[in-house]
């Protein structure tokens, strides 16, 4: 027991060194905007633990506390193998989906550059029991989806950062023969610094209808506010997306963009 306490104490200086510094480049403040991956990683040797939480939509009514009685949760870890290379794992309650990814920052890093260029590759595994799928015989490959994205970000001013994210989602099993297995996606996000420890954020994801033929009626979009608290970042959001997983958010039907179908959510990020 004594050894355990000593080990914990030994971690303290490390934890202090790993805080989110105030005034850091907007492109490097956290790894996620709301659901969308940002261009940066946590840096070499640093580990981030994140909790993402989305409540039900406002249409749930007063009986369900306008959505607060329901929740979807996602837990994950991101680790910086180097300043450029990040590995991540996460698990969502929605679809019992696990995913793993790597993210490699091709340009930008933490030097004082205006542009960031990052490659993201992700594989998701739907973990629902095979009898839920209702398919016989059932193949493991049905569970898999892949995401590849190129995150192109620019710091326009010290207070404003914006990025576009072209990408592709590959779905191993689609429903109809006419449905495409590969969907091109185009996402965007922005971050605006209000105060040294408070940012406003915005993000949107969409499929490209001319290619997929499956444009979503209401693409996922979210507004957020993030509070930087030393070792933690707390991100509060309002959006229509139910899923938090990269492979599902831009390709699945979400709630419409009206007051009844918005939902509150939050992310908590802890860095070591």
């Amino acid at each position: 027991m004594r050894n355990a306490w000593l080990s914990l104490l030994a971690l303290c200086p490390w934890a202090v060194l790993a805080q989110f510094p105030l005034g850091e480049e907007l492109g490097h403040q956290s790894l996620r905007i709301v659901n969308q991956q940002a261009a940066s990683g946590p840096g070499e040797g640093h580990l981030e633990f994140f909790i993402q939480h989305r409540f039900g939509d406002f249409a749930q009514g007063a009986y369900n506390a306008f959505g607060l009685d329901q929740s979807q949760i996602r837990l994950g870890l991101d680790y910086g193998l180097s300043d450029r290379l990040t590995l991540g794992l996460a698990r969502s309650s929605w679809g019992k989906t696990s995913n793993g990814y790597f993210k490699y920052q091709l340009a930008g890093l933490r030097e004082n550059r205006h542009w960031d260029l990052t490659w993201l590759s992700d594989v998701s595994v739907n973990g629902e029991a095979s009898n839920v799928w209702g398919l016989e015989p059932f193949y493991y490959s049905h569970r898999l989806r892949y995401v590849h994205q190129l995150i192109v970000g620019r710091r326009w001013t010290p207070r404003f950062y914006a990025a576009v994210v072209p990408g592709v989602v590959h779905i191993n099993l689609v429903d109809a023969a006419s449905d495409p297995n590969d969907l091109l996606t185009l996402s965007a996000f922005a971050r605006y610094r209000v105060q040294p420890h408070i940012n406003l954020t915005w993000e949107m994801q969409n499929t490209l209808p001319s290619v997929s033929g499956a444009a979503l009626t209401s693409p996922p979009m979210a507004l957020g506010m993030e509070f930087i608290e030393g070792l933690h970042i707390f991100q509060l959001s309002l959006g229509n997306a139910l899923s938090m997983n990269e492979a599902y958010i831009s390709t699945a039907n979400q709630g419409e963009w009206n007051a009844a179908h918005l939902r509150v959510g939050f992310n908590i990020v802890r860095r070591w």
């Binding site: 398919l135 193949y139 490959s141 049905h142 898999l144 892949y146 590959h170 191993n172 099993l173 689609v174 429903d175 109809a176 023969a177 449905d179 297995n181």
Partner: peptide, 8 residues
Amino acid sequence: SCYYDNRE
């Protein structure tokens, strides 16, 4: 293991 499957 990319597949191009559909249920139909």
